[in-house]
């Protein structure tokens, strides 16, 4: 392990989330959607781990299962060496002081009937700051930390722009000095010029408060910019995980290669070998046998159709799930 990142803050082992599909006259279970299917990774203290993938690959479900906002079906989530999957709701509630989340849609994640003071102050109240004077002071502090002003506290969400609302969401997440923040597509709903403001803010906050982020996004250039390590997900499985430079310079998995080549770059001179994938992502309710990617993979072999590849370390700190490397 690298010396500056001494211990893991979060360990995920074999995380699974299957959603039941109900159907028929009696609403019996007729199938399962394997949203997250055996995902394992570790997040070090102070690190930013990016998770990328296309829609439906299970990246958001993974994020929410870590906080147990969605109850995982199987597997282990260890936060500071404590398995949190079996904690009772009360213990979990206390623990969420240290684990927070920022959502994608700043329009849907703030209660339109509450003032900013109530929105940001609520987590403080829940975690025991009963004096309303103290709360007011802390809310003001928080708003200034995220680049808003104290007088914004008495306003309602509709009076803010998208970027400002996302700042309020960040202030709410920071309220109780968390250790880990799950960021679920925090900048996808924002315009480019505002997106860069929020990304910069998140980086500053990380340094100031020694935060650890799990940064979920579908935009590969955003993830590359902010993360230390990046994991790529496809159809509920982690297919590749390594340092961001390694991933972008030497992608191993054919899916990662295709994904990277598909990103349009605003550079008219760039000549690239483009891999345009055929077809769509298969349905997670009926995933292909063996390697989930074999139906679209340009380099698929016979073994890929039958045996699911193991997620293994093929080089130092470079994990890949692909038969090409075993």
């Amino acid at each position: 392990m690298l010396p500056k990142m001494p211990k893991p803050l979060l360990e995920i082992n074999g995380l699974k989330k299957y959603f039941d599909v109900k159907g028929g006259v009696f609403g019996r279970k007729v199938g399962e959607v394997k949203a997250v299917d055996d995902v394992s990774f570790t997040v070090m203290e102070g690190e930013i781990l990016g998770i990328v993938g296309e829609s439906g690959c299970g990246k958001s479900t993974t994020g929410k299962s870590i906080l147990r906002l969605i109850e995982p079906s199987d597997g282990e989530v260890k936060f500071e060496d404590q398995d949190i999957t079996h904690l009772d709701p009360e213990e979990m509630r206390k623990l969420r002081r240290d684990m927070q989340i920022i959502f994608q849609d700043p329009y849907a994640s703030l209660n339109p009937r509450h003032t900013v003071e109530k929105i940001v102050g609520e987590p403080l109240l829940v975690h025991g700051m009963t004096s309303s004077e103290d709360r007011k002071k802390r809310v003001k502090e928080l708003l200034e930390v995220v680049g808003l002003s104290g007088y914004h506290a008495s306003r309602y969400p509709h009076q803010f722009s998208g970027g400002q609302r996302q700042r309020i969401g960040i202030a709410r997440a920071l309220a109780n000095n968390p250790k880990l923040i799950i960021c679920d597509e925090p900048v996808s709903a924002l315009d480019v010029s505002v997106q860069s403001q929020i990304l910069n803010l998140m980086q500053e906050l990380r340094e100031e408060f020694h935060l650890t982020y799990v940064f979920i996004a579908h935009d590969l250039s955003v993830v590359k910019h902010i993360s230390d390590r990046v994991g790529v997900m496809y159809l509920g499985r982690m297919v590749e995980l390594t340092d961001k430079d390694k991933l972008y310079e030497d992608p191993k998995h054919p899916y990662t290669q295709a994904l990277l080549s598909a990103v349009p770059t605003p550079d008219p001179d760039e000549v690239r070998e483009r891999v345009i994938l055929e077809g769509d992502v298969p349905s997670p309710s009926n995933p292909p046998t063996g390697c989930a990617f074999h139906t679209r993979c340009p380099r698929a072999m016979d073994i890929c159709k039958e045996v699911r590849p193991q997620f293994e370390e093929v080089e130092d700190n470079h994990f890949v799930a692909c038969h090409l490397y075993t």
Binding site: S193, V194, Q197, N200, L220, S221, H225, P266
Partner: peptide, 21 residues
């Protein structure tokens, strides 16, 4: 606008951003 895009090639720590909205 062009400068505030995260670039996959460059390794800048901080992104340029246009102030305001």
């Amino acid at each position: 606008l062009i400068r505030s895009l995260p670039n996959m090639k460059q390794k800048e720590q901080k992104l340029y951003s246009i102030p305001g909205t």
